[in-house]
Design a protein around this nucleic acid. Sequence first.
DNA 1: CGGCCTTTTGAATGTCTTCAAAGTGCGTGG
DNA 2: CCACGCACTTTGAAGACATTCAAAAGGCCG
Lengths: 263, 263
Amino acid sequence: MTVLTTRGLPAADLLIRRLSPLGPLSAADRALIASLPSQRRQHQAGDDLQEQGEALRSPRIIVAGWACRMRVLPDGRRQIFCFLLPGDGLGLCARPNPLALSTTVALTRVETVDASAIGAVMRASPPQHAGLKTALLVSASLEEAALLDHMVRLGRQTAYERTAHLLLELRQRLAAVGVAAERRFPLPLIQEVLADALGLSVVHVNRTLQQLRRDQLLVLRSGYAELPDPQRLAEVANYHPPEPTAAVAAVIGREAWVAARSA
Amino acid sequence: MTVLTTRGLPAADLLIRRLSPLGPLSAADRALIASLPSQRRQHQAGDDLQEQGEALRSPRIIVAGWACRMRVLPDGRRQIFCFLLPGDGLGLCARPNPLALSTTVALTRVETVDASAIGAVMRASPPQHAGLKTALLVSASLEEAALLDHMVRLGRQTAYERTAHLLLELRQRLAAVGVAAERRFPLPLIQEVLADALGLSVVHVNRTLQQLRRDQLLVLRSGYAELPDPQRLAEVANYHPPEPTAAVAAVIGREAWVAARSA
DNA sequence: CGGCCTTTTGAATGTCTTCAAAGTGCGTGG
DNA sequence: CCACGCACTTTGAAGACATTCAAAAGGCCG
């Protein structure tokens, strides 16, 4: 059975579910993840999790709720770069002591746990955590690929395609942490947020969502989205899910991965 | 006097000019850069320098010409993510053996030199090249920031603002390698390329450029752009150049940088 | 029940695209 | 050296897509 909510789900389960397809996690890796502090910090919707230009705060993992990275223009226009979902890291960066390149804001109530131990693995390369580091690098790779996808949406897709494409990405990412069923997943975003992510006006997002509903491609209710026909939606949106295999190969090379699996 | 062409300029000069404001380059760092092979590989305009999904080719530095990273949709729509200018690296990545997340194509005739030595510094952390590694990481940081800037352009700026903003970015980056004067710099791009970068149609790019000219903010001729009033242009575009100081602090922390300078 | 935030609707407007064709510049070959 | 061809730029007109403004409807919480 698929878990449809993460609130209350231990951080470790979430992280292991997300990372294990991305690299060969050793027993030591799993132990390190399991030993992450269980104490959760609560953030209210609207809270800044990270201010642009400020030194990166100590690394944390989101265990519940949604956030986003964004930038605001002087006249109030806002662009959302990406959404941060349960299982995603905050301030997990391979660079030492970096400044934040964007502001991170909680979109719902968010719960995070400290992930300094994982940050340490990112910065050093302890041999007993090579698999974990691989998974983290693959994860960073996937994030970067998602940014490029988003740029294609903004620059070269219609409102209808953009919206469909984003919905499929969110479904895919939520599925990777066990928070999405095949067709149904939580979507706790108001239309203004979708608009700022998709580079559209709120009114137009509203009309685009209606069009998707009329076309039997989307059902929205009580904070959940349902995609009755993901296949057809993927076709209209030109959506291609990231292959985990490709993602892994992206960091360690396909041969190395095969070797690691069989070892 | 500002050098207005790089063809013939040694790779080392270009790289040192670009990297020295980004990190404290030691004598060893400069020696390593100076010892890069001088043999240049020629690529014709239109050549693939790197295919999406393919293993990253061995790292090289562009010493002359322009390239871009981009993705193409099945129906031929194309989005350009960023431009690669002289002094920029190809396949310089902190991740080991990664696959390319996008295709890289030469936009003009391009000359590159091998940069395996620099790639090695990126992957390992030889203590005698700590400064160089810092500079490379800062450089990667700036690249990422530029991607985010581009997303803001695509999602939340008008055609006029986008175009102005991109021109200012190009001027700034070319100036960093000594290829741009205060107001004049090479712009070897056809309008179709600008269109694919800016998420606009060719026709609209044409009209937007005309508008900029009518407003006395831009002069284009024989492959060069001139910005008669960069200040005013920056205002209409909401352009904020990346501060080198901020960039350095972004990687090593402000205090560490100050310490390194005075040491 | 009332107030506030969010969604929805309508109408007018504006930005940007598409299609089609003419103009311009430049290199090549006659 | 000129003429031609080709690629790129420019122009016009029509229409599609998206925004803006304004207001009504819906939902949720105190």
